[in-house]
């Protein structure tokens, strides 16, 4: 997804009084290029994750593997609102975030199979990948830990006086961790440029939000800290992009943090070994057939005659080829040399 880097917006009006708390904007009007960019970006994540699931089934990927299928619009729409240098950090369901941040599919897949050519030389695995170059700060396996870390990225932006924003992702489950609120407090107190993106996929592993959360409106979770929040249709990439624009503008103009509750859904289980018996098949099927983020874009592209079935098939093939190449690479690349056991422990 080669999203063209936008210029940082200049402060709207010198001396203008602070804007009032933003409200959920209407979905963005996408032009043809944007629709195609979103389509391709989401499709890459979907196909990549399907392939990862398959490789897991074949024993090439071990341990824990959390797939992002269903939630693709969230990272794709957010990425479309970024400028160069903006950071992203998330938890363990992270493959989609990495692909959205343009990390190499080969590097990600080879990390999943634990190979030397993986982004972390095979020493991190599914939940722990990073890229300083692409401003991707992981990949964290401890639920909620990335929220304090992401707040620290924003702290660094403010310390350096740049215009960059930290995109800090976490789930509805992590939203109940204590350090999230410690971070909210500091971020608001110090007006740190951080967007807290709560990916509410309705289930914290197997516990539904209504069974785990006293306040299920996550956009209100910052209320005690004076952090505004917006509810966003996380299945509609245009709605996500519009929210990203509002939120990044808010942060870049020095207003401090903001919360985006992305209402989304994961089609697969929490991890590969989750039979997902805590929800009905109808519920999953309904989301897939009525709200699928990729199908929505596809339908618009066809309706507006911006692409026909053949052109979409060509994109599909191109994406499948990238994924097949990454899978082939990840299965044939060599395992890390034994000497790697002892490297990278300290500098």
């Amino acid at each position: 997804m080669a999203a063209a880097a936008k210029k940082a917006p200049t402060k709207s009006k010198a001396g203008a009084k602070p804007p009032s708390a933003p409200t959920t904007p209407k979905p963005a009007d996408f032009n043809k290029e944007q629709e195609l960019e979103a389509y391709r970006g989401m499709l890459l994540i979907r196909r990549f994750e399907e392939k990862a699931g398959q490789l897991y089934g074949m024993g090439f990927i071990g341990g824990f593997c959390h797939l992002y299928i269903g939630q693709e619009a969230v990272v794709t729409g957010m990425k479309m609102g970024l400028i160069d240098g903006d950071q992203m950090i998330t938890a363990y369901r992270d493959h989609g975030h990495m692909l959205a941040m343009d990390l190499s599919p080969r590097g990600v897949m080879a990390e999943l199979t634990g190979r030397e050519a993986g982004l972390s030389k095979g020493k991190g695995g599914s939940m722990h990948m990073f890229s300083k170059e692409k401003h991707f700060y992981g990949g964290h396996g401890i639920v909620g830990a990335q929220v304090s870390l992401g707040t620290g990225l924003a702290f660094a932006n403010r310390y350096r006086g740049n215009k960059n924003v930290s995109l800090t992702y976490f789930g509805d489950g992590a939203a109940n961790q204590g350090q999230v609120y410690e971070s909210f407090n500091m971020a608001s107190l110090w007006k740190l440029p951080v967007i807290y993106i709560i990916e509410n996929n309705r289930y914290a592993m197997g516990t539904s939000v209504t069974r785990s959360s006293a306040e299920t409106d996550f956009s209100h979770r910052g209320a005690s800290f004076k952090i505004p929040g917006m509810k966003v249709d996380g299945m509609d990439v245009r709605a996500v992009k519009a929210a990203a624009d509002v939120a990044t503008e808010w942060c870049r103009s020095g207003e401090g943090p903001i919360i985006l509750e992305m209402q989304t859904y994961r089609y697969r289980g929490h991890s590969m070994s989750d039979p997902a018996k805590y929800r009905s098949k109808d519920e999953v099927q309904k989301m897939r057939s009525e709200h699928d983020p990729i199908e929505q874009v596809k339908a618009r592209l066809i309706e507006k005659k911006w692409a026909d079935e053949n052109e979409l098939k060509a994109i599909d093939k191109e994406v499948r080829d990238i994924v097949a190449d990454s899978a082939e690479f990840a299965q044939t690349a060599s395992e890390p040399d034994a000497s790697e056991l002892w490297t990278d422990i300290t500098h």
Binding site: Q87, Y137, S148, L149, T151, G152, L153, F155, A156
Partner: peptide, 18 residues
Amino acid sequence: TPITEHGFAGVGVGAAMT
């Protein structure tokens, strides 16, 4: 900082990662 060890330790680590 506020009295918030878990939080500010994480903020410090995040800043250090940059």
